[in-house]
């Protein structure tokens, strides 16, 4: 089988997918990042290698997500793209004619507005990560329910309680108050979903023209309580695509297909990288008072990348070594 790999290295999860030449998703792997992006990318690629039929050919690899540069250097990516573009590309392929994409991930939430297949506007949450997947995760853990059960329980609510959604810290204390007053768990969870949706539409969706078809994706789209809350708030049907939680990776693979075709070959280093030893570390450069934190990645002892220096002293040194 011939196809393309897309890797989305996010704060909470790492998604690796394989699409065939026609852009159809063949394999999808969803792993928790657990603070070790490199190890998990290696693990995911190994798993993918095992799942693909023998003799499969990788014609291109794309990376996206906040760890896209790191992952791109390790695997040898043909396309390294930001997650907004990746999501927009993937969704317009899967849901032709999409006009609004709501995406809520682990630390980020974004809204992308498309008209006639072109991104015309987007927004991401600002410095605060309130109301994203990590917060739901944390609250589920506090209430001792599994995150998979969260949505189902919320659906059982008869009347959702009102919870302050402006800030995750306030939301948590409000939830505790409501719980101590004797409100039922389903009502509290449904209230939380509504608060998050309200916060999302006020902050990220502020001033955006939300027109159907509306697609909801990202890890949080697994939560049926959130889907219902969005439907109620927007009074529009919400579509959740089949690979909603790996759409960024799908977009990365589609972008890799494009750039590998342009280049004529792929930069992919092969599945062997799963067995290489990678180390990352950072040090403080004392060359000037900027005191940049320089990050360096080594592959079997040799430095393959450095970044974080403002002047380029360290990152350029790697490039020169490679050329010579």
């Amino acid at each position: 089988m011939k196809g393309y790999i897309g890797i989305d290295v996010g704060s909470v999860s790492i998604n690796i997918i394989f699409i065939d030449d026609g852009g159809v998703v063949v394999e999808a792997i969803y792993l928790r990042t657990q603070g070790q992006p490199i190890t998990m990318v290696q693990k995911g690629l190994k798993e993918l290698h095992g799942r693909l039929p023998k003799g499969s050919k990788i014609r291109g690899v794309g990376t996206t997500g906040s760890g896209r540069n790191l992952a791109g250097i390790i695997v040898g990516a043909d396309a390294i793209k930001n997650e907004i573009t990746a999501h927009a590309i993937a969704t317009s392929q899967v849901v032709p004619g999409v006009q609004t994409i709501l995406e809520i991930g682990g630390q980020d939430s974004k809204i992308i507005i498309l008209r006639n297949g072109v991104v015309t506007d987007f927004a991401m949450n600002t410095v605060c990560a309130a109301g994203t997947g990590s917060f739901l995760d944390q609250q589920a853990a506090r209430l001792n329910i599994s995150i998979d059960q969260f949505g189902k329980i919320a659906l059982g609510s008869k009347s959702a309680v009102r919870i302050a959604g402006r800030c995750a810290v306030f939301a948590e204390s409000d939830m505790i108050h409501k719980q101590q007053m004797g409100c039922g768990l389903p009502d509290i969870l449904a209230g939380l979903c509504e608060a998050l949706v309200r916060n999302y539409l006020n902050n990220v969706g502020k001033g955006k023209e939300i027109l159907p078809p509306v697609v909801f994706q990202g890890g949080v789209a697994a939560n049926v309580g959130m889907i219902k809350a969005f439907e109620r708030a927007l009074e529009l049907p919400i579509k959740v695509p089949p690979y909603y939680n790996v759409m960024g990776a799908v977009g990365a693979a589609l972008l890799a297909r494009e750039s590998a075709a342009k280049r004529g070959y792929s930069l992919f280093k092969g599945f062997g990288i799963s067995d290489m030893r990678y180390k990352t570390g950072s040090f403080e450069c004392t060359g000037c008072s900027n005191l940049c934190e320089v990050v360096q990645v080594t592959e079997d002892g040799g430095v393959i990348a450095r970044w974080g220096d403002r002047c380029g002293k360290w990152s350029n040194a790697v490039r020169e070594e490679k050329i010579s």
């Binding site: 906040s66 997650e83 297949g117 991104v119 987007f122 991401m124």
Partner: peptide
Amino acid sequence: IMTRLEAFLDMVQWRKAA
């Protein structure tokens, strides 16, 4: 900052082409 800036420039170019 870089993610937002890159995505913004992608959008601007995309729109211009369209």
